[in-house]
């Protein structure tokens, strides 16, 4: 079986996405096993991200694999000026697979070019974060029972938010209808609207976060609106509260609506939403372990469904 790196979600086709989701489903039913027994997984976090690292390391531990690595570049040889290439080459001698996060964009792609050990991108700056997208996809599948023909409303920072871009690219296989809700300054970039045009995907741009939009949605995907994204502070002050979800706004929504958020949130989802059964963002993170078990086994060429 082939072992394969995962750098970006749009490098894999619909069939492979479905294969990964089937694996995630399997691991949710069978979270603990020994199928990574004897495997060494390196987690190289050149940029700290406790949330993502713990999720990956839990995924490995529950499958019986071992973890080596570092959680912060200051404790690694990078701080002594070692190049990324040299670090990857060195670790390749020890590990069966490398999970890496880096603030440098394109770092994971480059890593695949200097080693034969499969690379899993756990985030490279503002560029790609495919395990986040897979867990989003798995959360949608799990809560809706299908990925096909859903109305997905993305709210907040649609310009810089890499999670919404990757989710759009992954969902494009499943005939969605998109609502893009943001201020003009943070609207969905043209290249992604072009993708929708090319693929014949219906989409609507909104600046107002109205109940009509919420009521038509199957998934509400909320993102953080960060002050530093605005060239004009006044503009930020004007829009910062326009894209906040409050519990009262959900009164007319579909019973099956679920609210997702990549976390951590700031104030874009009011805490009064947390107890609403439609709030799914805390469980969403839990799905990350299954999604990462799926990614790790695929990269290592281990098929849990055929063991």
């Amino acid at each position: 079986m082939k072992s394969r790196s995962l750098v970006a979600i749009d490098q894999i086709d619909k069939q492979e996405l479905l294969d990964l989701l089937a694996r995630a489903q399997y691991f949710e039913a069978h979270p603990n096993s020994k199928i990574l027994d004897g495997k060494v997984v390196a987690t190289l976090f050149f940029e700290p991200s406790t949330r993502t690292r713990l999720s990956f390391e839990t995924a490995v531990n529950r499958l019986g694999g071992r973890v080596i690595g570092f959680s912060d570049a200051s404790t690694s040889s990078t701080s002594k000026g070692e190049t990324l290439k040299d670090t990857i080459k060195m670790v390749s001698n020890y590990a069966d697979i490398i999970v890496m996060r880096h603030f440098i964009e394109g770092a994971a792609q480059y890593a695949t070019e200097v080693t034969d050990v499969p690379i899993v991108n756990a985030g490279d700056g503002a560029n790609q974060h495919p395990s986040q997208t897979l867990l989003d996809l798995y959360s949608i599948l799990k809560t809706q029972g299908t990925l096909e023909g859903l109305t997905i409303t993305m709210v907040g920072d649609l310009k810089y938010g890499r999670t919404v871009h990757s989710l759009l690219m992954a969902m494009r296989h499943f005939k969605p209808v998109f609502n893009f809700v943001s201020s003009d300054e943070l609207r969905m970039p043209q290249e992604y609207l072009d993708v929708c045009e090319r693929e014949g995907i219906e989409y609507h741009l909104h600046t107002e976060f109205s109940e009509d939009i919420i009521n038509s949605s199957d998934i509400l995907y909320m993102t953080r609106v960060q002050r530093e994204r605005f060239s004009d502070v006044m503009e930020y002050e004007k829009v910062k509260n326009l894209y906040t979800l409050h519990n009262a706004m959900l009164d007319g929504s579909k019973p099956t609506l679920r609210i997702l958020h990549p976390l951590p949130r700031v104030n874009e989802i009011s805490t009064d939403v947390d107890d609403n059964p439609k709030a799914y963002y805390f469980e969403q993170a839990r799905n990350g372990v299954f999604a990462r078990q799926a990614i790790l086994t695929r990269a290592l060429g281990i098929d849990p469904l055929k063991l």
């Binding site: 190049t83 990324l84 290439k85 792609q109 480059y110 700056g125 560029n127 790609q128």
Partner: peptide
């Protein structure tokens, strides 16, 4: 940041030519 040649994927024609970085997109 690393000593590697850049690589761009070319799309479009004439005035609409776009270059996408193979590494950072």
């Amino acid at each position: 940041h690393e000593k590697i040649p850049t690589r761009f994927i070319v799309s479009g024609h004439g005035a609409d030519v776009r270059l996408r970085c193979h590494y950072c997109n």
